[in-house]
């Protein structure tokens, strides 16, 4: 099981802040994960519609979409950051 956490409008659109899911073996990168999640329902498809703007963090460090997510304990998906 992999823990997924969502923030800001990604969280609001998916309708939950976190969940644990079993990832298929074919899901190897961040981009694979986004495509997989979009098959889970309308709310996911809506939240992740514009894949390129979604930021991905693995175990609390930023990763690029083409990077591996193998062995991740916690994967976060969120919009571009607007702190400061």
């Amino acid at each position: 099981m992999t823990k997924l956490v969502y923030f800001a409008w990604v969280r609001e659109r998916i309708g939950k802040g976190e969940e644990e899911i079993d990832l298929p073996a074919a899901v190897k990168t961040g981009a694979d994960l986004l495509r997989h999640l979009k098959t889970r329902g309308e709310e996911y498809a809506h939240a992740l519609e514009h894949e390129k703007v979604i930021c991905i963090a693995v175990d609390q460090e930023h990763v690029e979409h083409d990077e591996t997510i193998a062995g991740a304990r916690e994967i976060a998906l969120f919009p571009p950051m607007t702190g400061g």
Partner: peptide, 22 residues
């Protein structure tokens, strides 16, 4: 910090309505 630290701002408006994410 503004572009890489995971923080997000949501606006609340003076007329009582909730705005969107910045």
């Amino acid at each position: 910090l503004k572009t890489s630290a995971p923080f997000w701002k949501k606006e609340h408006f003076a007329d009582g309505s909730q705005g969107g994410w910045v």
